[in-house]
């Protein structure tokens, strides 16, 4: 492969760990989502036994679905950036900022604004705008995505808290309340919305030119550009979609909590990145789709729900999540692509 610096190195796996990880990775990826489905069944099986069946109760399953919805939406937004070969760490900042926007513009206790249902396109637009800025920083200013999105996160988070003065803004009579909190045939609406979003994005990935370009860039950016792919445009668009989805997630979160505060955005990044990795989307890019991201979110939520039911120390839960992230990444990254890993 004519990749400048990284191609010529001999691929040395000096430790057995990394050799078996390579084998494990091939199995993990080649199987599409069958590996993940198997993992989900195993996880649920373990917890069902551990909780003596309580895990599989209708109530708990509904809880899992409803808890998994928002991380799934975020993961679907995030994973496309990862497929490109970049990373988007701006989740928390974008969500915080969009939540505050919701607080200010929807019918609330602090001011007379009430944009009604317009809040949906507004939030989506603000999130999308932030995403586009991420894309521009990465393509035009050539700042590596992990710093530019991290920086954006801090900038937006700070703005969010500054604008809201750190306070909680209660929402009043939000028209979306019934939608966000309701159920249809026992399935939480949010889960249905998440499913719809997954279906749309998966369709776009499978059946549009944009989907081809997304995977081409992730596979080999230089060759794609040479073949005529408009790399910058596609990247900006991908970051933009991610932002839109974060914005929508923020809206749903705010409505669900019936209030808007900047810290709503906290602790969303880690589960999202874990969901993406566990779902089988390789950090090195070019592999994995919306189904992987959504399924990954489901697995992570199912795992954490089980841990809670089993009364595991909440702080140990974070440790488990950390370990799962590291293992999932180790299994999915393509080491040949990275050459010398930094």
């Amino acid at each position: 492969m004519p990749n400048t610096v990284t191609s010529m190195l001999p691929h040395r796996s000096t430790s057995w760990l990394s050799t078996s990880a390579t084998k494990g990775r091939k199995w993990f990826q080649r199987s599409g989502i069958s590996g993940q489905l198997l993992a989900l069944i195993i996880v649920m099986g373990i917890f069902t036994i551990g909780t003596r069946g309580k895990y599989l109760s209708l109530v708990n399953l509904q809880v899992i679905l409803s808890l998994a919805a928002i991380p799934a939406i975020i993961a679907i937004g995030l994973h496309q950036v990862v497929v490109l070969g970049a990373i988007d760490l701006s989740v928390e900042g974008v969500v915080a900022f969009c939540v505050v926007i919701v607080g200010f513009l929807a019918h609330n206790k602090f001011n007379a604004n009430d944009v009604g249902l317009w809040i949906i396109p507004i939030t989506a637009g603000v999130g999308g705008g932030a995403g586009v800025i991420n894309g521009l920083l990465n393509t035009k200013l050539k700042i590596p995505s992990f710093i530019s999105t991290l920086g954006m996160s801090w900038v937006l988070w700070g703005l969010a808290v500054f604008v809201s003065k750190g306070q909680t803004i209660p929402l009043l009579n939000n028209p979306l309340r019934a939608v966000v909190n309701g159920y249809v045939l026992g399935i939480p609406n949010l889960a249905i919305i998440a499913f719809l979003i997954f279906a749309i994005i998966q369709l776009v990935q499978d059946r549009t030119r944009f989907g081809r370009y997304l995977y081409a860039i992730g596979g080999d950016e230089v060759l794609s550009a040479q073949a005529g792919v408009k790399v910058h445009q596609t990247k900006i668009f991908v970051f933009g979609i991610a932002g839109v989805l974060y914005g929508l997630a923020a809206l749903f979160l705010a409505v669900k909590l019936d209030s808007a505060q900047a810290i709503t955005g906290n602790n969303l990044l880690f589960p999202a990145v874990t969901a993406v990795a566990v779902g089988g989307v390789a950090l090195t890019g070019g592999i994995g789709g919306a189904k992987n991201a959504a399924l990954g979110a489901l697995i992570v939520t199912a795992l954490n729900d089980g841990l809670i039911l089993l009364d595991v120390n909440p702080y140990a839960q974070q440790a488990v999540n950390g370990a799962v992230l590291v293992v999932a990444v180790a299994l999915t990254i393509d080491r040949k692509k990275l050459g010398f890993i930094k």
Partner: peptide, 16 residues
């Protein structure tokens, strides 16, 4: 040894 990029590895260990 495990060849995981430092920004993910330290993100994980930091969380732990």
């Amino acid at each position: 040894r495990i060849k995981i990029p430092s920004f993910i590895a330290t993100l994980g260990t930091g969380g732990i």
